[in-house]
């Protein structure tokens, strides 16, 4: 464990909690892409199946349980509890265009052609593009609530910090996992446009609105 990975995990946890509280307190999921949240629930489910078979550490197991629990709670609130506030018209990204190629890629490019390894690889690839429906929805509505931008900032920051974690682990442990690194870099690049808007607008107290 190193400082980049710890702050990355905490940033990820913060993002998940921010979103959950935003929906719960405002009793609304307006502006939130339910499709992205379903993809994240799939990412955690396919990646954390080893919860049942391998004990790495209390931290590792607790965080996995929290991530999975919050992901499904968020999906439940979007599609069940507060479904009246779900903006399905703007959440129109075709996720099959993500899941199918990612599934094919996971079967073709992986570290080991085993069931668990392919599932893990699938979850890594899927996570790198899972935010696209959310970013697409913001581009369609042309705006995002400030709390939603804080959620996205923490979510983008988590994988950016993981990149520093991989650099750290390469130099101090000689460990590197090319699949996780390439997917993590792609994932972080997808946020760059948003990071620019967040820094130049939201941090200056303006609302995030895109030229429609």
């Amino acid at each position: 464990m190193n400082i980049f990975r710890l702050t990355g995990d905490l940033s990820h946890l913060a993002a998940i909690i921010i979103l959950l509280l935003k929906i719960w307190k405002s009793r609304s999921c307006a502006g939130i892409s339910g499709k992205s949240q379903i993809l994240f629930a799939i990412v955690f489910t396919t990646r954390y199946l080893d919860l049942l078979s391998t004990f790495i550490s209390l931290y590792n197991s607790c965080m996995k349980v929290i991530y999975i629990g919050c992901a499904y709670a968020t999906v439940y609130m979007i599609y069940m509890k507060f479904r009246a506030t779900y903006d399905g018209n703007h959440d129109s990204f075709r996720v099959e265009f993500l899941v199918v190629p990612v599934g094919g890629l996971a079967v073709l490019i992986n570290h080991d052609f085993s069931f668990m390894e392919i599932l893990w690889t699938f979850s890594i690839y899927l996570e790198s593009v899972a935010i696209l429906p959310q970013l697409f929805m913001i581009s369609k509505t042309g705006e995002a609530e400030t709390i939603t931008t804080h959620y996205l900032f923490c979510l983008g920051l988590y994988r950016a910090l993981y990149i520093f974690n991989w650099v750290w682990r390469f130099y101090f442990e000689g460990f590197f996992d090319l699949i996780a690194i390439v997917a993590g870099v792609v994932q972080t690049i997808l946020y760059c446009d948003f990071f620019y808007l967040y820094v130049t607008k939201v941090l200056k107290g303006k609302k995030l609105s895109l030229p429609a």
């Binding site: 995990d9 570290h111 974690n165 460990f175 996992d177």
Partner: peptide, 10 residues
């Protein structure tokens, strides 16, 4: 490639 990738990252 069957390196032992320890999956200790979240």
């Amino acid at each position: 490639m069957d390196e032992d990738f320890d999956k200790d990252e979240l």
